[in-house]
């Protein structure tokens, strides 16, 4: 798949799922490791752990003058609430990426016009690695395979750069497993 020159993303889920870190990794991959441009805005619900949480990420080859994402090209939904809130805003022809054990998208025919859905059992993959906390890194691997806005190499480097020292190996594997699932299930470069 060809790497897109610009893209607006909304990544949303519960607090504690690593939603913000996913957005941060995506932005770092583009800005630090590819010398392009990225912005991120984040918002939280009033609750403590478990409340709604979302990141708005804009990626571009050009300078970004407006960081808010009103109508994303890509929606990453990691909770049912996030899908309900943000799916109506997804641009026609956009991509919906969702955690298939946490989000039920219903009938594909109910999706907005031209939207393609990509599901990944990220929690199950993370559980195979015996660390549910790497769910978000599995998602990063998956979305860098099915919605390539950054090279695999840069995304992986950004993962290893962003996670705590000592956890790199397992996070690297989580990334690889998410990426592989994306390539094996939906095609793309391996």
């Amino acid at each position: 798949m060809e790497i897109q020159s610009s893209s607006r993303w909304r990544i949303a889920g519960f607090g504690g799922q690593g939603v913000i870190l996913s957005g941060m990794i995506l932005g770092r991959a583009v800005s630090i490791f590819e010398n392009r441009h990225a912005t991120m805005m984040q918002s939280f619900g009033p609750e403590a752990r478990g409340g709604a949480c979302s990141a708005q990420v804009t990626l571009s080859d050009e300078q970004i003058l407006y960081p808010y994402v009103k109508k994303p090209d890509v929606l990453v939904a990691m909770s049912q609430q996030a899908l309900g809130l943000y799916l109506p805003l997804l641009r026609p022809g956009g991509k919906l990426i969702y955690e298939e054990d946490l989000v039920d998208i219903g009938d594909q025919g109910d999706l907005p016009e031209g939207v393609t859905a990509y599901g990944v059992p990220a929690t199950k993959i993370a559980e195979k690695l015996r660390r549910r906390i790497v769910l978000n890194i599995v998602m990063v691997g998956f979305f860098s395979a099915v919605a390539p806005v950054v090279s695999r190499e840069s995304a992986r480097k950004a993962v290893l750069y962003s996670v705590p020292k000592g956890t790199e190996a397992l996070n690297g594997r989580a990334y690889d497993m998410g990426y592989k699932y994306g390539v094996d299930t939906y095609g793309g470069e391996s």
Partner: peptide, 13 residues
């Protein structure tokens, strides 16, 4: 791994 959890929680809240 607590560091990883703390990092995520700190960023999100």
């Amino acid at each position: 791994w607590r560091k990883m959890e703390d990092m995520i929680m700190y960023q999100e809240f």
